[in-house]
Design a protein around this nucleic acid. Structure first.
Lengths: 143, 143
DNA sequence: AGCAAAGCCTACTAAATTAGTATAGATAAT
DNA sequence: ATTATCTATACTAATTTAGTAGGCTTTGCT
């Protein structure tokens, strides 16, 4: 149970685009350099984010990526869900995997824990990460 | 990001021991049969649970496992932490993996989300799973 | 028109993790 | 003693994740 590099890199990609894409498209070569992440991997990560309407792209020279929406309207939950593959728990993703579906009391537990995870991410937007120090979410958990 | 079979099986193992280990040790052969799980895998899972004082064992014939504490005092968080390997996020587990540690605003997000996940599991005990339908935690989330 | 800089897409490979098996040993009831 | 059970380590196979490669498409610039 590890958060994948796709999600981690995806968040950093979006953050980088948010920071540098105010007035112009940001190309991935830049992001790869600044964030020290592999370009080809970033290209793969950008695609579902664009398809889902989180990023928008400009093709051709001087092209690149921009946020498709204001950073206040992009939650981390959306990003992780797109990149992580929806379901955290196998026996929830595919009921046929386990014929105990109807009675197994543990399924419910996993479902709730996964929900709690995503609920927390839902409450954090890109904008919160752009202005650290005065964040809305800074006071919610003592870790 | 998937919950591992170890955690899922571990929870079922404990539940089975809780149900059948009232008056006698439960041996893993039984559990394997009832829960349709591989015996050898269960043996591996039982070890850290015993070492952590969640299960206790009786060796020799008529031996088996018992809960080391009442089911009200065994939270799912403890079980998952023992079986899953502590940290959900690589760059939190080992700071040397990323030299941006000091400044990267995303680390904090992952930390909080992981915390939310474990907080939810912390609130659910084995006892809650033993008495479904009137559960303390049944009303907390609408999924 | 044509070159070059970008994104787009698919397929492949390598590394790591997870799931499960095998084998050998320790302990204790009978 | 024998046998049923837990204990421990090492191994293997399957799956997933991370990353690479190559070629295609679009479009600004000259």
């Amino acid at each position: 149970m590890k958060l994948s590099a796709r999600s981690r890199y995806g968040a950093r990609l979006l953050l980088d685009v948010a920071r540098h894409g105010q007035n112009r498209p940001v190309h991935l070569t830049e992001v790869a350099r600044r964030e020290e992440l592999p370009l080809k991997f970033l290209e793969q990560i950008a695609i579902p984010l664009r398809q889902a309407g989180v990023l928008k792209s400009v093709r051709g020279p001087k092209g690149g990526y921009l946020l498709a929406r204001p950073p206040t309207e992009i939650s981390l939950a959306e990003v992780v869900r797109l990149l992580e593959g929806e379901e955290l728990i196998d026996c929830l993703a595919d009921a046929s995997l386990c014929h105990r579906v109807g009675t197994c009391p543990t399924r419910r537990v996993w479902q709730e824990a996964g929900q709690a995870f995503y609920d927390k991410l839902q409450s954090i937007t890109l904008a919160d990460l752009l202005t650290p120090g005065q964040g809305l979410w800074e006071d919610t958990g003592d870790v």
